[in-house]
Amino acid sequence: MRVVIWGLLIFMLLLIVALPTVMLLGFGMLPGLVAMIVDRTEERSATFCVGGLNFCGVFPYLMDLWFGDHSLDQAITLLTDVFALAVMYGGACMGWMLYLSLPPVIASFIQVMSERRLQQLRKTQRQILDEWGDEVITDADLGGDGLMPPQPGEAGAGIPAPAE
């Protein structure tokens, strides 16, 4: 609750101090806002993806405000410029496209990598079985330490070495 109150206070302060900036951000970042509302995942990947590129499209015009005429008229002029809106929302669109197209590509890539890793692991296992025998499977399944029972001649088995 306290956060909300503080947020409202800051927002009110920003409205008083930088109304053009707030106005530009409010309208320009609408796709990002929508993405934030729509994205219910914990990671908020869609929000970051869409919001990030949306901000990338808004930022040049924000710079015009900050380093040019920081007035309400200028803000309205920018927001009514189709080209400016296309840039802002185009950035958001790029974000959405990135968000929607990259996971399948990455998944395919991971799939290929995994299969390659699987092949490597299976090859290693086959090499182990070739060298140490199938009993490795049993011992590995049993979760044993893989140690053999004491053999004659070892300490503990008690057979004296016949020659020195």
Binding site: S45, F48, V50, G52, L53, C56, F59, I106, Q111
Partner: peptide, 25 residues
């Protein structure tokens, strides 16, 4: 695995987006 790959893709997309934005800004 598919879900895992998608999540990884989404995270990657978000990361690319943020990094691109930061560089551009």
């Amino acid at each position: 695995m598919q879900v895992k790959a998608e999540k990884t893709g989404q995270k990657t997309a978000a990361t690319i987006s943020i990094i691109t934005t930061m560089i551009a800004v």
